[in-house]
Design a protein around this nucleic acid. Structure first.
Length: 437
RNA sequence: GCGCCCAUCGUCUAUCGGUUAGGACACAAGGUUUUCAUCCUUGGAAGCGGAGUUCGACUCUCCGUGGGCGCGCCA
């Protein structure tokens, strides 16, 4: 029997990372087993399930590369089917009508009253519970609408779902659902319950803890592959020391028995690191394309710049594309901004203007302006002055780039070119004297 | 309250009775130019407690403790 799994979110406008992780695990499980991954929109809450919300959901799926193998289905369209099944249950005496609280009658499903209920959870192992500890539950409201449990199980039956992989807040429901499958004469799927994602305090991760929705991560500049990989590592590990995996590796390696059953804390720092890893691994052309787009969007022109050289330095240090205009402006314009703290610390001390001019003079006479030559020249200067190299490196960096950090100074200088470097050093020296900085 | 589940460095995790308990993030120190966002090296850092089972337990069992989830005519 071939594997069929589904992701069954209720479209409430935003897709929570806990939810999308369930989608990721389902998708990987299906792809690994060469089975089918389906999407069922549980849109029975008509209030919140707006077309807009559904579109957002579909966008998030596409963004993460979670493609599904059959057209998505909508639970709200199956109401008649759900009610028919409830009717069957009623006729077989497996459910009964009851008027709770004096209102109209609702339909209640009968749970076993004795014995033990149990199932094997593919990640948590054997789960058991005394029947006496369960209760009958409503499957059709007195207003005539089906309740989640009925709708969920009915749709799983109709979609021939073989494995239900979902958050472990559903473990208790599973005892109910299994009885429903049996009562409806359908084969019971296998279950796998995934641990929750929690915050630094160990509480369920929510929007109060920062970005909690897929769309927010996208908007903040995270790459879908990075978020996907990071979320996968929350509760699953390949068994060896690999952490950054290609989609193919994930598919090949993913199995439910390697899933952990304890909650995982969401560690933003590691996600940031992961994002940097994915940016670094981007094909050079793709990084370049995005780089240029960002730079130009900031009103800067890249003509004349040594783009390949700049990219070579910047790709490995970029954690977010949005940082690019600010971190690289000095490569493309003379109107680059100065970091106030850098100016204060590196340019304001007495003697800096003279130092910058000395460096400019030394550089002007160099036969070739290469990183090594620029380095050697500064070394010679430092020695002549009896000062450390740092006394030259820092002011020069800030003068030339406006920043206190960036690529190796001499690589950066070579990339800028002798003319621009010397001009900037002199200009900054003059501005310092005129108190213009 | 009742039921169920969970428990390895600060964090994510490896280990499926025998390891100096490994890796990654983060942190610290050093080096890479007295820069840094890269790179290299090094370091600190863990089996919740108590009983058992066993020649031998992080690993198996039980009891505590702590945490989470569930107990809706929400999903």
């Amino acid at each position: 029997m071939s594997v069929r799994v589904r992701f069954a979110p209720s479209p409430t406008g935003n897709v929570h990372i806990g939810n999308i992780r369930a989608a990721i695990f389902n998708w990987l499980f299906a792809r690994h087993a060469e089975g089918r991954f389906l999407l069922r929109v549980e849109d029975t809450d008509r209030e919140r399930s707006t077309p807009e919300a559904i579109r957002t959901l579909l966008e998030c799926m596409a963004w993460l590369g979670l493609d599904y193998d059959e057209p998505e289905t909508y639970q709200s369209r199956q109401t008649a089917r759900h009610l028919a099944l409830a009717e069957t249950l009623l006729q077989r005496g497996l459910a009964y009508r009851e008027a709770k609280g004096g209102g109209d009658e609702c339909v209640v499903f009968r749970m076993p009253k004795e014995g033990r209920l149990e199932f094997i959870d593919l990640v948590k192992g054997r789960m058991r519970k005394q029947a006496a500890d369960t209760q009958d539950f409503v499957i059709v409201r007195s207003n005539g609408t089906p309740v989640f449990h009925l709708a969920n199980v009915a749709d799983d039956i109709d979609m021939k779902i073989t494995h239900v992989i979902r958050g472990d807040d559903h473990v208790e429901n599973t005892f109910k659902h299994i009885e429903l499958f049996r009562a409806l004469g359908a084969p019971v799927p296998q279950y796998a319950h995934l641990p929750m994602i929690v915050n630094q305090q160990g509480k369920p991760y929510s929007k109060r803890d920062g970005a909690a929705f897929v769309g927010e991560f996208r908007d903040q500049g995270y790459l879908p592959e990075a978020l996907f990989n990071f979320l996968l590592l929350l509760g699953w590990a390949p068994g060896d020391d690999r952490e950054v995996l290609t989609r193919e590796e994930m598919v090949a390696l993913f199995t439910l028995d390697r899933c952990k059953s304890s909650a995982a804390r969401f560690d933003l720092k590691k996600l940031v690191w992961m994002n940097g890893e994915y940016i670094r691994r981007l094909p050079r052309e793709r990084f370049t394309e995005e780089f240029v787009r960002r730079v130009e969007a900031a009103g800067l022109a890249t003509d004349g710049a040594d783009l390949p050289g700049i990219i070579g330095q910047m790709q490995v240090r970029t954690k977010f594309f949005r940082e690019i205009p600010d971190s690289c402006a000095y490569f493309f314009t003379e109107a680059y901004a100065f970091d106030p703290q850098g100016v204060e610390k590196r340019l304001k001390p007495a003697g800096v203007p003279e130092t910058l001019e000395e460096v400019a003079a030394a550089y002007a006479t160099l036969p070739a302006f290469t990183p090594d030559a620029a380095h050697a020249a500064l070394n010679a200067l430092a020695e002549a002055r009896g000062s450390g190299l740092g006394a030259l490196v820092h002011p020069v960096r800030v003068a030339v780039s406006g920043l206190t950090e960036g690529p190796g100074l001499f690589e950066m200088l070579a990339l800028l070119g002798r003319d621009r470097v010397c001009a900037r050093l002199r200009t900054v020296a003059a501005r310092l004297r005129d108190h213009q900085l």
